[in-house]
Every structure is written in structure tokens, then in C-alpha cells.
């Protein structure tokens, strides 16, 4: 995709940025899925009740299910070596992939001195970080 009216960013710069963002997204999701699979295997190995039915399903997915909540809960769960924490870590890696992609895009446009679109990309990053940290 080449922008006809872009003064500063050449088609090559834009293509390179798109390529790097694409790679970041692909690697992020693959890594996230890998961590999830490791976490699920750990969970099943550590809790034999999950396979025999001694642990009721509603205790895990019902309204009163207990699982790590938010980034703080994730850090606490990982410190305790919880398998559910590892699964949630994989989920968070997937969730973070587009955010890292947006950061890379902002960096690419700013490095190419395409300031307008670079600033817009930074605004998107800021919105995503506010949603992650402050809300």
C-alpha cells in the first residue's frame, strides 16, 4: 500500500513498517498460544480432579469461579507458580500483540519523519495503554 500524498514517508518506508508490524503480530500470537498450551498441560497435570470430575466445572467457569484477575492478579499467580496464571499469561501475550504492533507502527512513521501519522499512531498507543493501566 503506497500513499500518494505522503511527502516524507516513502513507499519503501511504509512497506517496511507494515512488514515489521505484521511480523510482531504473528510472533505475538504464536508465543501466546504456546504459553497457553503449556499452562493448560500444567493445569491438567497438577489437578487430577479436572480429568476425573472431582472438581466441578461450575467452580471453574461459574459466576463465583476463582481465577487471577488483572495484571496484579496475574503477577501474584505467577509468583505462586499457579498453572492458571501461566494460561492467563498466554492470554495477556495475545492481548498485548496489537499494542506492541501499534508501538512499532508509531516508531516506524516517526523514524521516517512522517509526523502527522506518527502522532496519530502514538495517540492510539496512548489510548490502549490508558485502557490497560488506568481503567
Amino acid at each position: 500500500m503506497s500513499g500518494a500524498t505522503s511527502r516524507a514517508t516513502t513507499a519503501r518506508d511504509a512497506h517496511r513498517t507494515a512488514h515489521v508490524v505484521g511480523r510482531v503480530l504473528g510472533v505475538g500470537v504464536s508465543l501466546g498460544v504456546l504459553v497457553i498450551v503449556v499452562g493448560l498441560v500444567l493445569m491438567l497435570l497438577r489437578h487430577p480432579g479436572y480429568t476425573t470430575g472431582q472438581v466441578p466445572l461450575h467452580a471453574l467457569i461459574g459466576r463465583h469461579a476463582r481465577f487471577p484477575v488483572g495484571i496484579e492478579g496475574l503477577v501474584r499467580a505467577l509468583r505462586h507458580g499457579s498453572a492458571a496464571g501461566v494460561v492467563l499469561l498466554g492470554v495477556v501475550v495475545i492481548l498485548a500483540s496489537p499494542i506492541v504492533g501499534a508501538i512499532v507502527a508509531a516508531g516506524g512513521f516517526l523514524a521516517a519523519r512522517d509526523l502527522r501519522i506518527g502522532v496519530i499512531a502514538l495517540v492510539v498507543v496512548l489510548i490502549l495503554l490508558v485502557a490497560t493501566v488506568a481503567l
Binding site: 467457569i61 495484571i71 494460561v87 495477556v92 485502557a131
Partner: peptide, 20 residues
């Protein structure tokens, strides 16, 4: 993906993403 990341972050902090 960008759109869903914004809302998923809030669902996560609220305990509405059950890893299982």
C-alpha cells in the same frame, strides 16, 4: 485487533476474562 485489545484490557482488569 487494536479495537478488541482496548476493551479486552478493561474486561481483564474487571475479572471478566476467565482463562479456562
Amino acid at each position: 485487533g487494536l479495537t478488541a485489545a482496548a476493551s479486552a484490557a478493561i474486561y481483564l482488569s474487571r475479572g471478566q476474562i476467565d482463562p479456562l
